[in-house]
Write a protein that binds this DNA or RNA. Structure first.
Lengths: 255, 255
DNA sequence: CGCCCGATTGAGAGGGTTCAAAGCGAGTGG
DNA sequence: CCACTCGCTTTGAACCCTCTCAATCGGGCG
C-alpha cells in the first residue's frame, strides 16, 4: 500500500514506477511526535523537509492578545516546508494537532530529486500551488461566509482532501480534532463553533460522534456551504461536480 | 529608471546586469486596461504571463450571495499568473482596480528564462513564496484581528510593499482605491470601513485625503496593528524593525 | 444645472463574543 | 473500586462589534 504522499502527488502528475520508488526511498526516515508539539518555529531554518505520514499538523501564527490562527491543515501526504530554504527563515510555526508520524527528507535529497526528475519536480510544484489555492479559498471563507457555512465548507474540503489519500469514504471520515482547534481554524470562538456544529447537526447536514464525521448527503452540504471543489485541482474526478448555484458563472465586474 | 518588477525581484535575488536586460526584454510588450476590467477569469488558461507595471489589480472571488472577497493586491512589479500552466486552469479571477499598465510576457519566454537562468528562476520562486506568505498573514488578519487593526495592518503592508518598488516615501503613499474596494479586501462593509478610517484618523494614526495616505508615526501604527514585517521577507532592510510587543517570542504551544 | 458615484452619517437588528458554570468521560492514585 | 482530576464539550445570558438599510452630502462631469 502506497505512502499517502505518493497517492497525493499522483493527482498532480503521472509518476512512473521508478519515480514512486525514488520517493519511497527518500522518505524512509520517519519520526513520531506527540500532539501539540511544534515541529518548526517562526525564525527556524529547518534542515529536513517534513512530510506528514499519519496524523494532522497545522501552520499557525499567534497574535498579540494570545489568539491563535491556524492557516493550514497538514494532512497525511502534505509537505510542511518544501521551499523555505529560498526564503531564509520560517515566517510561521508548524505544530502537530494530533499525534503524528512524520517523514524527514534530507534537504539534499529533495534538491537532488528536483534537479534529476522532471515529473517529480512538477508534482511538487503542483502540490505547493494547490496549497496556495486552498489558502485563497480559506480567505474567502473567513471574509465572506457566516460561521455555519464556514464550518460546512471546511468539512467539505476535508472530505475531498482525505479521499485523495485514502482516508475518507464516500460520506465520512475521522476528524480527531478538538472543537477548540477547529475554532482556531475558522476564526471563531470554541463556544460559537460548538453551536455551529449543533446547528449543522440539527439541520440534518452532518452527524458528528466520537470524532467521526458523517455526511449523508454530500451534495446538499456542498450546496449549503457554497463549496466549489475547483480550487483543489483534483483532476482525477474525486470531487463531486460543483453544485449549480455554487458556481459563479459570470463573475461580477470588480469595482 | 528600472521597471518595478525588476526592482522587486532584486529583493529576492542578486540579479546580474545581464539578468536585468533579459527581463526588460521579455517584458517589452505592454497593454493598458481601464479600471474594473477583468484580466483573467476563473476557468481561463491565460496565454501570457501578466505583470503589473502601473496601477493596482487584484485576485478575487465572488460568493453565492454576490459578495466579493479580494484575496491579493497586485501592485506594480507583481506577477499575476506565473504558474497557472501547471494547474491547468485559473481557480479565481484577476481584475484591475484602477487603470493599469500591464506587461505581457509570452509563456514561452518565461519558460525559456526559467530553464536558462538560475538566478531569475530563483527570484521568481522567491516572489511566489512571498505571495503565499502575504496570503497567510491576510488570513490571520481576517480571522483574529478587529476591524481597526485589520485596516491598520493592511496600510502598513502597503507602505512596505510600495516602498520596494519606489512608490512610497518613508511615511506616505498614494492609494487610489475606493472604500468599497478596501472593504472587499478586509472582509467588511463599506460603511464599517469608512468608520474605521475615521477612527484611525481620530486616533492620530493616519491621515487620508484625496487618496493619499500619510503615516506620521510608522512605528506607532505598526504597534497598533500588531504588524510584524517578517512575512514580506524584505532582506534589504526596507522594513522597520518589528515593534517589540508585536513579536511572539515564544509561540504558545498549539492545542 | 442635473446626474452619478463615492463618502458619510444615523438608527436598529443580529451574529458572535465573553464570562461563567455545569456536564461528562477517561485516566490516575489511593 | 471509588474518588478525584483534567481536558473537552455544552449551555446560558449579557454585551458589543459589525451589518443592514436608509438618507444625505459632496465633487466631477456632460
Amino acid at each position: 500500500m502506497p505512502t499517502p504522499f505518493i497517492l497525493k502527488l499522483e493527482h498532480g502528475a503521472d509518476l512512473s514506477d521508478e519515480d514512486r520508488q525514488v520517493l519511497e526511498q527518500a522518505a524512509r526516515e520517519v519520526r513520531l511526535f506527540s500532539p501539540r508539539h511544534d515541529l518548526i518555529r517562526e525564525g527556524n531554518r529547518p534542515e529536513y523537509v517534513h512530510v506528514i505520514v499519519e496524523g494532522i499538523a497545522c501552520r499557525y501564527k499567534v497574535v498579540r492578545d494570545g489568539g491563535r490562527q491556524i492557516m493550514a491543515y497538514l494532512l497525511p501526504g502534505d509537505f510542511c516546508d518544501l521551499h523555505v530554504s529560498l526564503l531564509g527563515e520560517m515566517d510561521h510555526n508548524i505544530g502537530t494537532l494530533t499525534a503524528c508520524k512524520v517523514a524527514l527528507l534530507p534537504r539534499t535529497a529533495v534538491e537532488d530529486l528536483t534537479t534529476k526528475r522532471a515529473t517529480i519536480t512538477r508534482a511538487l510544484w503542483w502540490a505547493t500551488l494547490v496549497d496556495e489555492g486552498i489558502l485563497r479559498e480559506w480567505l474567502v471563507n473567513m471574509g465572506r461566509r457566516p460561521a455555519d457555512q464556514r464550518l460546512a465548507h471546511l468539512l467539505c474540503e476535508l472530505l475531498l482532501r482525505l479521499r485523495c489519500v485514502g482516508l475518507a469514504s464516500d460520506t465520512s471520515f475521522e476528524l480527531p480534532l478538538t472543537q477548540g482547534q477547529l475554532a482556531d481554524t475558522l476564526g471563531m470562538t470554541e463556544v460559537h463553533l460548538n453551536r455551529m456544529v449543533h446547528q449543522l447537526r440539527k439541520a440534518g447536514l452532518i452527524t458528528l460522534r466520537d470524532h467521526l464525521v458523517h455526511i449523508s448527503d454530500v451534495e446538499r452540504l456542498m450546496a449549503f456551504a457554497d463549496f466549489n471543489p475547483n480550487y483543489l485541482h483534483l483532476n482525477k474526478r474525486l470531487g463531486t461536480e460543483p453544485h449549480r448555484e455554487a458556481v459563479a458563472k459570470v463573475p461580477r465586474q470588480p469595482d
